[in-house]
Design a protein around this nucleic acid. Sequence first.
DNA 1: AAGGTGATTGTTCAG
DNA 2: CTGAACAATCACCTT
Length: 126
Amino acid sequence: MTRPNTRQSSRENQTKKLSTTTTLKPKKKQKQKKRDGADKPKKPPTAFFYFLEDFRKTFQEQNPDIKSMRDIGKACGEKWKTMTYEEKVSYYDIATEKRAEFEKAMAAYVKRKESGEVSEESEDYD
DNA sequence: AAGGTGATTGTTCAG
DNA sequence: CTGAACAATCACCTT
């Protein structure tokens, strides 16, 4: 099967050409500085991250001069795009399984929310 | 000394 | 539909 289980069926709808204003170019950072205490389940690592795990080791061996993950990230991104679809599928497959587990966590989260147990609303009650 | 930042793409949620 | 934020990781920089 050269096809990943990446919810292609559902994604097919979004896979359309939405080249209007999809994803702007935020020059700002994406760091979360505080308050991750949300009950919401953390997002599962993407296929890219799994690729990093494997690529990182190889990259350091081939480039012992490079240490920081930032530099590797750039190299990974570049390499990632050069990778063929079939190769990426391997990582997508892993991520897909992870998402399945995350989906359960999300369902439990929603269920819990319905129980009125938690409100993600800004409850700064301290 | 200690902590926040930056960079990578993908995924997911919320409005 | 669209946008914005966050997932791992670690050297480097700022305070």
